[in-house]
Each structure stands twice: as C-alpha cells, then as structure tokens.
Amino acid sequence: MIWKVMRDENLGCNSYLLGDEVTGTGMVVDPLESVGATEYIMTAQDLGITINHVVETHVHADHRSGARELAKSLGLKVSFGARAAVSYDFQPLSEGQKLSLGSVEVEVLETPGHTPESISLVVRDTQRGDDPMLVMTGDSLFVGDVGRPDLQDAGDDEIIQASRMQFESVRKILNLPDYTELYPAHYGASKCGGLFMSKKPSSTVGYEKKFNFLAKISDVDEFVDRQMKLLKPPPEEAREIRAVNTGTEMEVN
C-alpha cells in the first residue's frame, strides 16, 4: 500500500495520496492549492500509482482547495459527499459506498456537523487484513479537538443542530477499532478547530476516545454546550474562500 501525507505547514493542512502499487491505482484526498496539481501528479507517478479519484472530505472554509485543478488536469470529476452545495459537476459519494484502489479499499462514512456534506474515509489494506487500518476524518474529528459547527454563516439554532450532528459523527468515527490511525485535514495552526487542536498531525481512534476533550463527552447536551462556549470568530475571508471552493465565485482578489 502507498501512503503519502502531503502537507502545508503554514496553513496546518494535511492532504493525502494513497493507493495500491500492485494495480497502480490511487486517490488524492483534500488536495491543496498551495501544493499544486503538478506536485500531486508527479509524486503519484514517482510512487508508481495513477490518480483515479480526487476526493474532498468537505467544502473547506479556511484555505483554497486544489481539487478542481487537479481533477481537471487528470480528466476526472471531484468527488464530494452527496450533500455538497457546489456549483460544478461532481461525483457524489454516500454512506457505505466503497471505492476500490486495487487491494486498498476506501469506505465512505457520512460525518456531518462541521459542514452538512462532511465525510470521513475508512481505509482497509485488504492485502494485509479486512479490518480498518486508518481513517481520514476531514474536519469531523481532529487530534485533540473536533470540527467547529459555525462556519456555514448559520443562525444559532442551525449551529446547535450542526453541533448535535457533530456529536453523532464523532461517535461514529470512535466506533472504529481503537488502533485505527486517525488522519484529519488539519492540525496545529488551522482555524477550523478550536482551543484543543494538537500540533501533532495524526493520532489513533483509541487515543482520541480516551483523551480528546470534546470527543470523550458522552452526553449530547453537554457536548453542544461545551462546543457553543468555545465558539470564536470565523477565519477571515471564510466566506470568500468557500465561494472559491464551491465555484460560486470565479476568483477572489
């Protein structure tokens, strides 16, 4: 199995290139504009895999996505959770759907909350075993923190609703085996998390279950209450960045 983390340390963003070296099939998750389409294509070629899927875990509100440019360079469509409100044509993914990369299998979990279309991707290396090996959680569950529910320009009621969904989504991720490696879309510096986000870019399900301040709360009302108390101003330009990433605005600046 090929697994390559490609990050932007200034933005605190993780993106992932994965695939199966035997069949030469691969996937990029949450590609970054700052890394650039060429870098993903060339890295995949050097590792001996072709990029067959370009997947976004959700519409990002804090940084510009490189998904559309990458997909276009490869003659592919970007894949999104089916509920994504983007203006361009995308490949919808829904709960339980499996994408096969040779012996590497990627299963879609719908994990709404941070955004309605948020998904997490559970990866199995079937050459080694049938159980989950790792999960890419987007902005649903971070190392030390969970995704904030308030970046949709929503009112208070909607934010509370989103927070309740976030609670369920976190539970869903934490139902994976404890040893499952956890790879979120952000770490450290990112504005999509809160007070507790770790500078460490990856963790395990078991560790977060035990020590993640918000994720270990077992009561939904307490979770929502905590999350509401931790709200902070949205990142500057969140609206503009979302507009670029959803294709509703051609270009900002």
């Binding site: 035997v22 069949t23 030469g24 060339m42 070629q45 050097d46 001996g48 895999i49 072709t50």
Partner: peptide, 22 residues
C-alpha cells in the same frame, strides 16, 4: 506511463520508460 498501464495496453513497438522526476 507507469509500467502497469503500459502492460495493460500499449502501442506495439513502443518502449516502456515510465517518467520519473529523478
């Protein structure tokens, strides 16, 4: 193209030399 793409299908008489940055 990558060797496994070439192997699946290629133009007869072409040579397989997968591009790499190194």
């Amino acid at each position: 193209r990558l060797a496994n793409e070439y192997t699946k299908k290629h133009i007869p008489g072409s040579v397989c030399a997968p591009y790499s940055r190194s």
